[in-house]
């Protein structure tokens, strides 16, 4: 039962989506399934929260390495949940001044806004910005012209790196912009690489992936591939 019901739900939903794409009269089926999916996606937020609690509470109770970080995660999670869910410090909506909790959680100056502006935003920006440092270090240590393929990759990287900045204009600005060799200007070369080589390669990959997805989807819809149920089949 635990395996049959999910299999049938998957098969019915999948078949409905496939049919609705080909028969306009059944378009509503596809919309219904998409709506179910959205409801599930919203529920997934709750499940995600539950899973986060489970993982980190276990880490803390087992005193695993880094359990201190887990306690910070949980403290932040509960603080944000409490501030957001109970609308802490939110002023009532001017339209409904007598109705409790009528204001917007995310209004400027509210604690939730403060958490976003001064905690979430700088932290996520910092995490992403750190990539620049690691990419630079990796470029110095790992980007080697060991063979023909690596040389081609290096050459393309130089064209894109320089062509996407004003350096490209400075270095190859002497080539007449309207002349026969204008295509050799770095800024034009970088566009050419992106539009021709990149597009050709990507289209091939996209077509390959699409065929793979179609094949895997069929296996899932027909119940041949059940690995998504976690059975290991």
């Amino acid at each position: 039962m635990r395996r049959t019901v999910p299999l049938w739900i998957t098969a019915i939903a999948g078949v409905a989506l496939v049919i609705s794409a080909f028969l306009p009269a059944t378009r509503g089926w596809g919309e219904d399934v998409a709506t179910w999916f959205s409801i599930l996606a919203a529920v997934a937020f709750v499940l995600g929260g539950g899973n986060l609690l489970k993982v980190h509470l276990r880490k803390i109770s087992d005193r695993q390495s880094g359990w201190g970080y887990s306690s910070i995660v949980l403290a932040c999670f509960f603080a944000t949940l409490w501030v957001g869910l109970f609308k802490v410090g939110v002023h009532p909506n001017p339209k409904y001044p007598d109705v409790a909790y009528s204001g917007q959680t995310q209004g400027i100056g509210s604690p939730f806004w403060w958490l976003y502006e001064y905690a979430f935003k700088p932290l996520t920006s910092t995490m992403f910005a750190m990539l620049a440092f690691y990419v630079a270090s990796a470029a110095f240590r790992a980007f080697r012209a060991k063979n023909v393929e690596a040389v081609l990759l290096l050459g393309t990287a130089f064209i894109i790196l320089l062509g996407r900045t004003f350096a490209g204009v400075v270095l190859t600005g002497w080539i007449p912009a309207d002349g026969a060799f204008a295509g050799l200007r770095l800024e034009n070369l970088s566009v050419y690489v992106m539009q021709v080589f990149n597009t050709a390669g990507n289209r091939a990959i996209i077509i390959g992936i699409a065929l793979g997805i179609a094949s895997t989807s069929l296996k899932i819809l027909l119940g041949i591939d059940r690995s998504y149920l976690g059975s290991g089949d």
């Binding site: 240590r141 290096l154 990287a157 350096a167």
Partner: peptide, 23 residues
């Protein structure tokens, strides 16, 4: 923001070249 991007990209090119010279 194209200014920082220019200098950062030039540094990347330089690091790749130096890394390969060493190699």
């Amino acid at each position: 923001r194209m200014g920082p991007q220019l200098v950062a990209h030039l540094l990347m090119v330089l690091l790749i070249i130096v890394g390969n010279v060493i190699f």
